[in-house]
Structures are given as C-alpha cells and as structure tokens.
C-alpha cells in the first residue's frame, strides 16, 4: 500500500515498538462505539449505512480515499486519493488526529482527536465494519500500524540444521521431503550455496514467484542458511 509514507514514518519514529503492540491490542471497540457518537451527526456505519453529510464508513479500511459510492468529496480529498492516499490504521489515525493536517481542503469539519487511546478505540470500532483477513484472506491487516524496517542482519553464514528442520515445516506444506516433484519443484539435496542464492533471488524480486517471494522475504539471512544446511543433507 502506498499510503502516506511521511506520516507512517513519523508515527513509527515517535512511539516505535509501542505502536505495534498497542495497535495489535486493537483498542477497545466498545469505548470506540461511544467515541463514534461525535461522528454520528455526519457519518453512518453498520448494516444499512448510507451517505449523509459525510460518506458511510463500511469497508473504510483497505480502500482508497474518496471511494464511497455516490458521495461528492472535496477536491482536496480527491486529490489526496489520486496521489495514493488509502485508508489503513496509520492514515486514518493521522486523519482523525487532525483532518486538515492530512488533507488540507477536506470538508470534514472536525477538530480532531488528540488522544491516542481515543483514536485507537474509535479505529477498533470502525475496523469491525471492514473485511477481516480471516474471512477474506486477501484483506490487509489494516487494524495494525505497520512497523517497517528492521535492520538487516548481515551474513550469518553457517546454518543450524536443527533450526532449519523446524523452519522446513513451512516448505513441506508444498515441497515434498522425499524429493518428489510434480508441479512444485524438489528442494532436497541442493548444494547449500545454490539454495541460498535462489532464496535471495526471491527476496530481492529477481525470481518472480509470488508465494516464494513472500516466504523468502520473511526469512533472515541466518534462517535461509539454516534451511540450506538442513535440506542439503536431508534423507
């Protein structure tokens, strides 16, 4: 999602790891329902919600800004949407903290919620009315703030095959330990160097398979080495 890198960075920089923990705890949706009363003069959410003074807010997480069907948005919000503003935890958090700070010509006439807990609770309430990953797996986990960069560990070369054996559980849902290959290639008994090279090619998007890119990207260099060590000698 290309939403608002400047804001995201600020949030992460200010509160760091705490953002993650707090966002995952998800706020208190019951308290958020009470907070929503100050929004309800303009916005509807839930079953049968319609556009009113403001747009209806069902499915707000995960969609591009200015997208409620049939609602006439301000030029400012339309422009922000054209520039890539999409609603997720971070962008909504910034918007309700101070709407005009995020979208200068928005018509949303709301002074903002300066208190983080208030915003967390309100967003936890609103998140209920958007698609959830467990119901629709392609939904983004937009209820949580995204904490981007973890400093990359550089080259732990000697892999631990015991750890590799545990990690291999993620591979063997598809690739067979027996080395049988049918639609999905064999990954057993490769020289470790080739294995590591291939995995880094997925990590760096040089190899294009989306499942493998996803699996490789979450493996540290040490974990790739551990897998390589395990699969090199697996019987």
């Amino acid at each position: 999602m290309t939403s608002w890198p400047a804001i995201t960075c600020t949030v992460v920089a200010l509160v760091g790891g705490a953002t993650m923990a707090r966002a995952e705890a998800g706020g208190d949706p019951d308290r958020g329902a009470e907070m929503f009363r100050q929004c309800a003069g303009c916005h509807q959410v839930g079953s049968g919600a319609k556009n009113a003074i403001g747009p209806q807010l069902n499915g707000i997480f995960d969609r591009s800004a200015a997208r409620a069907e049939g609602f006439a948005y301000s030029d400012g919000l339309v422009r922000a949407a054209t520039n890539g503003l999409a609603w997720d935890f971070d962008s909504l958090d910034a918007y309700i903290e101070n709407p005009r700070a995020l979208v200068s010509q928005t018509r949303m006439n709301f002074r903002g919620l300066p208190n983080q807990q208030d915003r967390d609770d309100l967003l936890a309430f609103l998140r209920i009315y958007s698609a959830s990953p467990s119901d629709i797996p392609e939904s983004a986990p937009t209820a949580q703030a995204v904490d981007h960069e973890v400093a990359p560990e550089i080259l732990a070369i000697v892999g631990d095959p015991t750890y590799g054996e545990y990690l291999s559980g993620e591979c063997t849902s598809c690739h067979q330990t027996s080395g049988a290959a049918n639609g999905i290639p064999s990954i057993t008994n490769w020289p470790a160097e080739y294995f590591v090279t291939a995995m880094h090619a997925y990590k760096d998007d040089v190899r294009t398979h989306p499942v493998m890119q996803m699996m490789a990207k979450r493996l540290s260099n040490e974990e790739v080495a551990a897998l390589a060590a395990y699969f090199e000698d697996v019987e």
Partner: peptide
C-alpha cells in the same frame, strides 16, 4: 488462482504479516 499470506504470533492473536493474490 491463488491467495496467500504469512503470519506471526503476537500476544493478542495470529497476525497477518504479508500477503499476495
């Protein structure tokens, strides 16, 4: 067609990390 994601354990739940469709 396919859809997939990776997940991690948090104190709260199994949380989505990354995905594709």
């Amino acid at each position: 067609v396919k859809v997939g994601a990776t997940y991690e354990a948090t104190d709260e739940k199994i949380a989505k990390v990354d995905g594709f469709i």
